[in-house]
Design a protein around this nucleic acid. Sequence first.
DNA 1: TAAAACGTTGGAGTGCACTCCAAGCAAGTA
DNA 2: TACTTGCTTGGAGTGCACTCCAACGTTTTA
Lengths: 140, 140
Amino acid sequence: MSVIESTSTARPPATRKDRYTISEVAALTGLTAHTLRWYERIGLMPHVDRSHTGQRRFTERDLGWLAFVGKLRLTGMPVADMVRYAELVREGDHTHAERRALLEDTRRGVLTRIAELQDTLAVLDLKIDHYGTICGGTPS
Amino acid sequence: MSVIESTSTARPPATRKDRYTISEVAALTGLTAHTLRWYERIGLMPHVDRSHTGQRRFTERDLGWLAFVGKLRLTGMPVADMVRYAELVREGDHTHAERRALLEDTRRGVLTRIAELQDTLAVLDLKIDHYGTICGGTPS
DNA sequence: TAAAACGTTGGAGTGCACTCCAAGCAAGTA
DNA sequence: TACTTGCTTGGAGTGCACTCCAACGTTTTA
């Protein structure tokens, strides 16, 4: 479920702002302000709005995008690929097929990684069991 | 795939192909020779035997260790922690408890990572589904 | 025996994903 | 207003895990 469908027709409670400073976004996302600026510089953010003096003002939509990017990061996707995805989004609706392909590749990668991890889990359990009981000492 | 061939007259009594050159080990493990030397330099390998002229000769035991290290690497464990584990092995049997603790920490980390990945999988599936059906165009 | 292929070392270089710095302008508080 | 904290930029620096280099010695093959 994405966070971004905050509609403008229904007035939300006063706790929800529509413009966030970089440090507010840093606190909300767990990213540093440095990293947020860097994301923008490399093209991983859609254009971020500015105040009349040039300071960044992030929207709810930016927050939603950042949440999704956070998920992509957790998949282990390289930043370069996330930038590619962001480019596709900027290019418009005709890139849907490529976006889906990218996501499906990522999905396959995640599945593979989960299988790998479950494999290591088996080895780890064997080893832990070994230390828990007999404790023979060869490094193997 | 057989590892045992690759040469020659089986004359010398001391050489029962249980000694592997660095490039053989590279081929068997998928690591590069560079990486194998680097592993040794940083203390991630137990002492590797040498030929009379100083070239490395890996044993079956080294191969087993490398296989285990490969599993640890797949867990995402930092190299520094793997080196710590290797040190504990070198220090002898009285480090069993600490070794087990290290492995149990790693196990918990793997479980967490699997959960994270399954979470990203849910988001990915939602998104892929979205592109598969309606294809509305907001970047979210 | 000669050439090609393989091995050795310390140290330098690479790519990734941040992370920080300096110097100066902007915003909120007493 | 003065002060303190926050935000701006381009560019340099960091830490990790390799990855490669130069210059030379060793082993295998023809």
